[in-house]
Amino acid sequence: MQRIKPFDHLILILGALFLITPVVMALMSSTQNAIDIHNNGLYFTPGSNAVPTYGKVLTHRGGFTGDVTGMRMLMNSMIMGIGFAVGKIVLSMMAAYALVYFRFRFATLLFWMIFTTLLLPLEVRIMPSYQVMSTLGLLNSYTGLIVPLLASATGTFFFRQFFRSVPDEMLEAARIDGAGPFKFFIDILVPLSRTMMAAIFIIMFIYGWNQYLWPLLMTTDESFYTLMRGIKSILQVWIGSQIPDYNEAFALAVLAMLPPVTVVVIFQRMFIKGLTESDK
């Protein structure tokens, strides 16, 4: 056995502190009021202002048109995260199924067509993507927020790897048992993939929830704002104000980080497995 030195713990504690302190500070400061923060700087202790601050952030109609509340943004972020994750799983499972379990013409060509999308992230084709969306009239819609982000093969890649690891005999037994392509998919393959689906759901939910640039461009109508978009607009209001609403900004940040962090901490094991085993 290796000896455990206190030094190792020291480094870990420093590392953990480095990572977690900003989060704690944001959380604590969100329970203070803006003037205190303005005068005293950031807080490490909880204040008494949590209820009014969060209440205001969640229900106050903010923005330029006064249309959007924190609740609304929270809901939009949820729709974005869940919609993206579900869409991704459905599309990529089906595509991976076709690629792994069928013999058909142009299969290899299609394989390359799909996997080329891994080459270029959305950011490098952001301008033309925007133009395409406006041509299609999809600006300010949930479809426009979610569907274009699905145009990447990450999920297909994960599921393809997973399907390849399913023993060949599973299909053979099912065929002898009289299962056709649709039955095999629904009865056997989907139930077999449950763990994989859950892991990918978590990763994709976080990815969708955390989207910033795309919602920024796609939504001018504030009723479609997500929390990430809200952060941008709270900063825009900020400029030029005397005492910015620090506490509200922090409260918004806490709301924006809470769901994904909760999901990751609760499903830690599954999440790590999904991430490290499928990404490689």
Binding site: P167, E169, M170, E172, A173, I188, P191, L192, R194
Partner: peptide, 9 residues
């Protein structure tokens, strides 16, 4: 089958 190929679920 050699590995039985039972449906695990």
């Amino acid at each position: 089958f050699q590995n039985y190929a039972l449906y695990p679920h």
